[in-house]
Nucleic acid binder design. Sequence first.
DNA 1: AATAAATCACAACAGTTGTTGTGTAGTAAA
DNA 2: TTTACTACACAACAACTGTTGTGATTTATT
Lengths: 202, 202
Amino acid sequence: MGQSEMRQLSENQLARRADVVECAWRVIIRDGVDRASIRSIAQELGGTTGIVTHYFRDKDELLLFALDRVIKAMQAVEFPEKKSELTIKAIVGCWLKILPTSKESRDNWRVWTAFTGYAVGREHLMAEYRKSHNEQVAEVAKGFATLRAAGLLHPKGNDRDDAIACLALIDGLGIAWVINPDRYPEKVFRTVLSDFFDARAP
Amino acid sequence: MGQSEMRQLSENQLARRADVVECAWRVIIRDGVDRASIRSIAQELGGTTGIVTHYFRDKDELLLFALDRVIKAMQAVEFPEKKSELTIKAIVGCWLKILPTSKESRDNWRVWTAFTGYAVGREHLMAEYRKSHNEQVAEVAKGFATLRAAGLLHPKGNDRDDAIACLALIDGLGIAWVINPDRYPEKVFRTVLSDFFDARAP
DNA sequence: AATAAATCACAACAGTTGTTGTGTAGTAAA
DNA sequence: TTTACTACACAACAACTGTTGTGATTTATT
């Protein structure tokens, strides 16, 4: 996030900001990030540019806010922590929730993909992705460590390497769906993920 | 490709077009696709907009040409066909060539990523990606079939599923490098790829 | 040498962009 | 009721965009 110096937003103001970002998302998905202008977002809102400029200092702040929501949405899925719920099946289910299998997650992936490309040549945006990506790798590696400690993974594997491979697999599948939605139903994801974990079975 | 109705280009003309596209690439990597204007590309060429408009009907044609070069560059690596050269080690080496391990392949990945995001909300660009993606899946699946027939892969695996997983892995690793170049040296790629093929060993 | 074509430079065009400022209703606090 | 603030609408700004046309210079062809 880059916009933390704001006075103190009321609940209504926060909700209105969320409205603006939601419309920004819709325009991004429909027209692309670079064509998501303040005017087109305002039109999507059913109002004028005054709304957007009132709730966001400038477009950069709006985009960073929208990007932040993408990242947060990606990290929203909670993986099981209790040992009783810790099964490979449950883990696969969580990854399936992250992958584009529902309307929400599909929007997430489209916007995520659009922003990733948009970040090329924009170091401050790429830095945001970098930070979140590093955190993800660390977190997933920790998850694999837990799985391994629980005896659900082959003891010889490396947590970090597995985490990198898993995340790459997820990103690759997500993008493949964005490029080719019809060819990537949930069933394909499930098969690929099952293979991934089967290969690492103890 | 979308620009096939051109009279008949001389060798010099083709070379000049390649120059323009190369400069377009540089600007895309430096500033992003959406900021790669005809004027900035001309400046990178050391000339004026007349050059660009002379060799390309409009910007759309230039972008499609640039995208076509990305896709062709990605498919340029030749996998072994002779049975004597057919080893897992050689295959891994080919994938490593595709991954961002050299200056050229790194540029490829940056531009590819930029275009992928740019294609969100642009159906005709996305359709190009879709076509090339489908071809890739089919080709890689054929490659896996050959490997399996040669006894280098576990006989129980599915060619198509493996191809999808492999390509997703490659795309995910490539993007991870674009986001975080310092953390993805060749060694990481090699490890992840080795794990992938080890898991499918006969 | 005459003619045609290729290769640009340059300027003008209309359209779109983010930003800024001004004005105006409505609402809450004093 | 006065005052202040929120929540917009609206207009004007300069900067930038792709496109088009004109003209000059060079190169190739006849």
